[in-house]
Design a protein around this nucleic acid. Sequence first.
DNA 1: GGATAATAGGTGCATATACGCCTAATGCAA
DNA 2: TTGCATTAGGCGTATATGCACCTATTATCC
Lengths: 152, 152
Amino acid sequence: MDKGLPQPGLCNCLAIRKAARHVTQYYDSHLAPTGLRTTQFSILARLKRLGPRTINELAADLVLDRTTLGRNLGPLERDGLVAVGVDPRDRRSRVLDVTEAGAERLTEARRRWTDAQRGFDEAFGGPQAAALRQTLAVLVNTDLGAAEPPGQ
Amino acid sequence: MDKGLPQPGLCNCLAIRKAARHVTQYYDSHLAPTGLRTTQFSILARLKRLGPRTINELAADLVLDRTTLGRNLGPLERDGLVAVGVDPRDRRSRVLDVTEAGAERLTEARRRWTDAQRGFDEAFGGPQAAALRQTLAVLVNTDLGAAEPPGQ
DNA sequence: GGATAATAGGTGCATATACGCCTAATGCAA
DNA sequence: TTGCATTAGGCGTATATGCACCTATTATCC
């Protein structure tokens, strides 16, 4: 009877990806009126909080691949929400900063985000949500390593 | 002192998305030798377990948008791992099924997946992982609703 | 049975994600 | 100071994700 086959619900990766899609669609529906996606909101919010940062620094904070963040900056820079400059102390680096327009957009988006958070807490439970965030924070800081190359 | 500004780590959406990226990269590194991404592996594994299903049915199971699954089928169909046919009882529907080549690829990928699961449990803790999966299953089945339209 | 509503997917568009390879700039050592 | 390793990003490519809008097909109601 399917001995050895993985049972539904046993895959850590599928479990978290399904949940991420579920939650993302919910937050996106709240943020939609602002014209920001959740990823864009995250970038703006973290950058605003951290202050000017390089691509590598911000990418690490967001657990984003460096090149992914680089591309995600495209729409934000195009719309004048994030400024990208060259670090004078290291001209290899790009310094990112939230523009005034970006800050205004962020303020508006934070209102929607607060609504989403409240709705989430009501549906899922505030304490459960806090516990889940804590667990996920531990997970993100857990070094899972990578697959060993198939060397002999 | 930043009163009212969301503190880092308070956003449910960012927390789960960061964790999803972290875990996805880990599982992808294990599955890479098979030529399958985690999403493709999920599709094959679920379809194999559920048996032939329509796009809508499989998409709901995977918490994927219908159109997203439709596009994700492209590479799988191109590589002959999934067969897409028309349901004779309802010619609007497409019936998906794992091909023989798909089943073989899946068997190979399951070995890598098992390694990844073992590594995950070792690093994060087996009981903690099981508890997290359970929590995420509850979350996925929690109706978060959607933002109310800005009606009058 | 024919008009109409509802459903299953497809397509255009835009963003999200990351690997591999490349160039530019910096750091370091002989 | 020059030569090489290291580091910061960019770019090509491919897949992932979902909304708005569209067609085809089926169900329903008079």
